[in-house]
Design a protein around this nucleic acid. Structure first.
Lengths: 229, 229
DNA sequence: CGTAGCCTTGAAGGTGATCAATGTTTGTGG
DNA sequence: CCACAAACATTGATCACCTTCAAGGCTACG
């Protein structure tokens, strides 16, 4: 396993840009830092939503599963992302999804009361949260738009999205280790189909995978697949 | 065509429950009531998002289309629903979807500035908007969960959702006239498939359709299809 | 009365699901 | 340190569901 990097200081997260240390202290009042192992759930769908969360290190996946046990991945979250903002202000808040750690990760649990009292009344934060929501909604709609497209289009789109979200420089390695199963769960297909597709891509020299790190070799080719007929 | 009913007075919309007439006046300052004919767009994806909208009568569909001209219906909205709340607070706001009238409809266009100044600072409204967002996000996730399910499951789920959303009493007629094409665009399939499915359901006595009004005869049967293997 | 929108039906064909079996790597406990 | 279990990757064969294409009918409306 890769040695975990040092956690980013909380004050330096983009969401707290331009705030003073004392203000940040107020915003995370009562907060607890938790560390989770690979596959460990941070919370489960149905649990009382007592905490708003901020990812400090690593990544998580937000999933739902149906009666047959198939998992659908709704969203990946990573450094600086927020979780469960929408559900906080609801009476009898219940998490609608299960949140599972990908690799060794860390998150800051902020009590619901702190969030409701401090965050909602803060215009800049409110706007920031709004922007995050807008982007997530947008992404879900984009994926919905591709629902009828062939599998390759959907997978290409997913990979491009994951890269773009954390494109620090021209980095062409996916920012988080991801299994074929998780890709399948994300685009709504079977593992075997994803494996066959990615094997083809590998032999065509479009991607390269090492363990669970996926590297894009021919970005333009993936983009072409996205716009495909 | 059915004769349009009288529009509900704006003050009586659920979203304004408990507010005084003067307060409501403030909230809709600069608002314009517009009437749209069947198929007429209220705004298009890409237009500058200058207005927040409130549906006063009839219904609209929010759609996106891909390169090949396939339309995906993201959401149906009806009496009392709000449109474009999330995009208002963004700099250079652009509508991400196209909004098309279903039948003769009416909406109240509220200037972006009014929304940003009045609505966001009002705790009760903020909470109400939050709830709407949460529900929509939830619904999108539910549909995502059913993505792998057979067509019949997805259509059954859609119909049940549409009924439930406006279940005034035990009404089993869909609250809005909807074509097979629109059902297909909603669940991400081809018209022909939807038609074949619904023909089967009709001969099985599960549903009945007259023009574009769909009536559910055997609700339990639809529910069973939703939970289907 | 012709066009446009909607519904219907049939035939053909493909994409991807499913099932089954096997290999590989990782992690864990004796 | 080895053995075993668990998670992940792979490959092949089969086939159902749904898409696509083509053609035609129905109704509403200008």
């Amino acid at each position: 396993m890769v040695a975990p990097r040092k956690p980013t200081p909380i004050n330096e997260l983009p969401i707290f840009q331009g705030l003073k240390a004392e203000q940040v202290q107020e915003l995370i009042r009562g907060g607890i830092v938790v560390s989770t192992k690979h596959h460990e759930p941070l919370f489960r769908a149905g649990d009382p939503a007592s905490y708003f969360l901020l990812v400090l290190q690593g990544a998580y996946k937000l999933v739902r599963s149906d009666q047959q046990g198939h998992e659908s991945i709704m969203c990946f979250v990573s450094l600086g992302d927020t979780i469960a903002g929408l559900v906080m202000s609801r009476p009898n808040a219940i998490y609608p999804v299960t949140c599972i750690s990908i690799g060794q990760s860390m998150a800051l649990k902020i009590p619901r009361e702190t969030y409701n009292q401090e965050w909602l009344s803060h215009p800049a934060l409110q706007q920031h949260m709004n922007a995050i929501l807008y982007q997530r909604m947008n992404r879900m709609q984009d994926e919905r738009l591709h629902q009828r497209a062939p599998l390759q289009t959907r997978v290409a789109f997913l990979l491009l999205n994951l890269i773009e979200k954390y494109s620090s420089g021209a980095d062409r390695v996916l920012p988080l280790p991801i299994t074929r199963q998780e890709i399948a769960d994300s685009v709504g297909s079977a593992v075997e189909s994803v494996i066959r597709l990615m094997s083809d891509w590998t032999s065509a020299g479009i991607i390269r995978t090492e363990d669970r790190r996926i590297e894009i070799l021919q970005l333009d080719e993936l983009i072409r697949l996205t716009n495909d007929e």
